[in-house]
Design a binder for these strands. Structure first.
Lengths: 113, 113
DNA sequence: TCAGATACATAATATTCTTATGTATTATTG
DNA sequence: CAATAATACATAAGAATATTATGTATCTGA
């Protein structure tokens, strides 16, 4: 089962930021694979969604990039800036709060998953 | 505190459906107020978001409507169709699953709210 | 009486995703 | 060893869905 795409909306940025907080330094393709692996294929980030998001994070000064060559192929590593670290904590905390609210709102107690 | 609007994206339809499942019959304005009240003002659904959503649910055959006059003012009541009830159960269950996944992904254990 | 709440609706715009396409390198496998 | 899949980036067109603004009209309370 893959979640309907609308659920990802609004959480992608937070997911990416949190992964960078945990892994110091990651490149785009690695992020898609990591999310896929951690969620047992339930969340699959498309490249068309990820790269624009990464570029936006960079434009906002939340991440910094380093290009690196693996053989002849370029890799673009992303890591959190100081501002990015602060922002990540805020967004994760907000999402946690939001999920508690939603849990209450949807009256979700012990639904089997 | 009001959640950043992006968090609402993708969950609005599910919220509306669940409220209708719990309350049998509601009108638009009532839904906005109910959500505001249940979430202690943290989620405020704008009319520009709600009405198009309700119309889409109707077009999809998930809800049925009845107009009613309160004095001279019209009210449009929404209730779940049979298909709507099934769909609601599916969407709520999917969202519950998604939130568990997100909880794991974001490593959220006992963050104070 | 008049401001605020109730109650609907829609249009222009912005955001952000999907889908499709493009380029190129490296690894695998029949 | 050639073809395919995986790795790795990127962007553009289009769809979906929200924000913001606007419009209309009624009812309530100070």
């Amino acid at each position: 089962m893959i979640y309907s795409s609308e659920l990802i909306k609004g959480t992608l940025k937070t997911i990416v930021l949190k992964l960078l907080a945990d892994n110091k330094r990651m490149y785009g393709y690695e992020i898609t694979q990591k999310v896929k692996q951690l969620t047992m294929d339930k969340i699959q980030i498309t490249e068309g969604a990820l790269y624009p998001t990464l570029h936006a994070l960079e434009a906002d000064g939340l991440v910094i990039t380093e290009a690196e060559y693996i053989g002849k192929r370029v890799r673009k590593y992303y890591s959190l800036s100081k501002t990015g670290k602060t922002k990540t904590a805020e967004k994760v905390s907000e999402l946690a709060d939001f999920m508690n609210t939603m849990k209450f709102l949807l009256d979700i107690q012990n639904q089997p998953v």
